[in-house]
Design a protein around this nucleic acid. Structure first.
Lengths: 198, 198
DNA sequence: TAAAACACTTGACTTATGACAAGAAAACAC
DNA sequence: GTGTTTTCTTGTCATAAGTCAAGTGTTTTA
């Protein structure tokens, strides 16, 4: 899939014209991250965001014991972004790292902001995206409360099997809020067929 | 504290002038909620938001067992708002209820949106507020993972003692992600002095 | 290709938390 | 002001999940 298709896909919005999209597209630059490589490290101020074309990335923080806790998996065609530090221009608490070799399109945030103020459709798109992002956040934090670890795992498996297949168990475990030992046992239970897949 | 002081306080932003604030202020109307009364019920589309002058309110959802789970406590001078359903104009998953008799200032969202597009400072304020809201969300969902139930309780006690004092234990418990039984025991441990208050 | 690092599983044990139920105290409603 | 409901605590017991440690297989890397 070539660049303009990806960009059109990600920025799809009724108010954005073909010309808008071409312009937006032209401002994205190809970047590659190899497995383990960091896009953003804790303490840095991000100056851009990415669109992930292929591969898998994750964001994580360190908890009070110094353990890293995965906060999000970025999958194909998602924005790879740390919203808070980018918008507030403050050092990031989160780090972002490639889990597999990844190909991305990068856009400078200043450049984006200029466009944002000149293309009305883009600010609409941005507002929508941000409110969707908030929605995903609220949903996820609710799930952490209302679903069991097994159900959270099954949900991730159903919605993002690529994460289960490509990410190491320990990162999936912290993402789901359990230890790797527990997750290993959950998998065992599921594979025994005791757990209905709904 | 009279109306304009509250409004000035809540909408404080370098780009908002005295005249802007007077105009904004004039569009807020006094409303009262008595203890237990709903501002928003699950399934409704909100058409406004509130500024809480005095009292305590909470938002909550029902989990898969039908238990209500408190998602947020609204305290003095906070916006009482369900962002997603208000912005996306869809039925709310959350309900919002007064925990004590409360005095609020209400503004119609359409009215706000008109202002939003005509007063540049207000859209800046809105963007900032929303990103702060996101920040609070991320912080909270992180805490749910990285802090123990006891630490989460102590943090709430430190930052919002008024919630601990005014909300019934069962709602505090679901907010913290534990049962009321557990929270009661956590309190007991703390009162024994075994837990350092940091 | 050998050594090291990592990924995953499993066992034994401990601990935290939940479910259920009973009872005291406080708040509320008529 | 009394009866009812709600709130909170506490006990017992069951269960889920964490910790620690060992062992196996698989990548990675020099």
């Amino acid at each position: 899939m070539e660049k303009s298709k990806i960009i059109h896909n990600v920025y799809a919005h009724p108010l954005l014209t073909e010309e808008d999209l071409s312009l937006i597209s032209s401002l994205h630059q190809e970047v590659y991250f190899s497995k383990g490589e960091y896009y953003l490290s804790k303490g840095e101020k991000p100056e851009s965001y990415l669109i992930l074309q292929s591969g898998l990335m994750r964001s994580f923080v360190y908890d009070y014991n110094g353990n890293d806790v995965t906060t999000h998996f970025f999958t194909k065609h998602q924005l790879v972004i740390e919203v808070l530090s980018l918008f507030k221009q403050m050092p990031s608490e989160e780090s972002i790292q490639a889990m597999t070799d990844s190909k991305c399109w990068k856009i400078d945030f200043n450049v984006f902001e200029n466009l944002f103020h000149t293309i009305p459709g883009l600010s609409e798109w941005g507002r929508t995206w941000f409110s969707e992002e908030m929605y995903r956040f609220k949903q996820r934090s609710l799930e952490m409360k209302t679903l069991s670890a097994t159900d959270r795992y099954l949900k991730l498996l159903k919605n993002h099997p690529e994460v289960i297949l490509q990410a190491p168990l320990k990162h999936i475990a912290t993402y789901l809020g359990v230890t790797d030992t527990s997750l290993s046992r959950i998998r065992k239970e599921i594979s025994k067929g005791d757990i209905p897949l709904k």
